[in-house]
């Protein structure tokens, strides 16, 4: 597993998201993760779920599932990162996203997408001419 960028990254990110998901439940009302990142109950559940999906795909699944999950979660975070820009300060911001959250979502998305799409790509089959 250590020799696969997708599986290693999926494991690291999965453990990280599970850890911040659990940590969020112990924060006082209105508390910020690391004094910076806004979370709420739903946001914590989302972190836990995403962390579990990433970790299971990387550890239990093979390379293919790790690549797929990294790419999908990366794309989802990219959408969330962009949407977050327009959600700040609006009543539909039900994940309590703040500006540092957007930066973290964006940074996570580009790393997951870059490795999911760019590393260990399946070789295209040669076309018969």
């Amino acid at each position: 597993m250590l020799s696969s960028p997708n599986r290693l990254l999926g494991t690291i990110f999965g453990v990280f998201f599970i850890a911040i998901g659990v940590w969020g439940f112990f924060l006082p009302d209105g508390g910020l993760l690391l004094g910076l990142f806004g979370v709420n109950l739903l946001h914590n559940f989302a972190h836990l779920l995403i962390g579990l999906i990433l970790a299971v795909a990387a550890i239990v699944g093979g390379l293919s599932s790790a690549r797929t999950v990294n790419s999908i979660v990366g794309a989802a975070y990219l959408v969330l990162g962009i949407a977050g820009l327009f959600l700040l300060g609006t009543p539909v911001n039900f994940l309590a996203i703040n500006a540092p959250d957007n930066v973290l979502h964006f940074a996570s998305s580009v790393v997951l997408l870059a490795v999911g799409l760019g590393a260990e790509r399946p070789k295209a089959k040669p076309v018969a001419r």
Partner: peptide, 17 residues
Amino acid sequence: GQFPSVHELNLPGLHLH
């Protein structure tokens, strides 16, 4: 990038931390 936080939001049925 100007909005610092939305923790003051209290949406119905949602417990914001």
